[in-house]
């Protein structure tokens, strides 16, 4: 019962990607499908909202993230928790992270710069809710 559902879900998501981005997008989607995350909190509003489901290209810190990119990193103060933030600047090889909504964000201003080696991946596609399906970045 469960396995066919997974297949159906993957096929559905694949179709969406084919429809929107043609074949390379579908490949990328298939690769990052296991790395799905749900957004909580408001620090990335309005680009990312609580309840958004994202696909994360789990390429780690390579190539090096550049300013402006979204990254998923473990919280430097609590490694069991993942954060999603935007790289605001790269200084001496370290990433300065900021929320898109600075007034509602705890980020590098509080916990300092993070090592690019700790980056787990980059969110690139929102597959839920339906009204907001599309690329993120």
């Amino acid at each position: 019962m469960v396995a066919p559902l997974v297949k159906a879900a993957v096929a559905l998501a694949g179709l969406l990607a084919v429809g929107r981005f043609a074949f390379p997008g579908a490949l990328r989607l298939a690769r990052s499908w296991p790395e799905r995350v749900a957004v909580t909190g408001h620090s990335m509003a309005p680009r990312l909202l609580p309840g958004d489901w994202l696909l994360v290209d789990a390429s780690g810190g390579t190539p090096r993230p550049v300013a402006g990119e979204l990254v998923v990193v473990p919280d430097p103060r609590r490694s069991d928790r993942l954060l999603v933030k935007r790289v605001s600047a790269v200084e001496r090889g370290q990433l300065l992270l900021r929320g898109d909504a600075p007034d509602a964000s705890t980020d590098s201003r509080t916990f300092g710069a993070v090592d690019p080696g700790t980056v787990l991946g980059r969110p690139w596609f929102r597959y839920w809710p339906p009204r907001r399906i599309g690329r993120v970045g």
Binding site: M1, R36, G41, L82, D107
Partner: peptide, 17 residues
């Protein structure tokens, strides 16, 4: 059930203390 399969396994915090 379909939604449960589609749902992410992990949360990413767009965090604020």
């Amino acid at each position: 059930r379909l939604m449960a399969q589609l749902a992410p396994r992990r949360a990413v915090h767009a965090h604020c203390d």
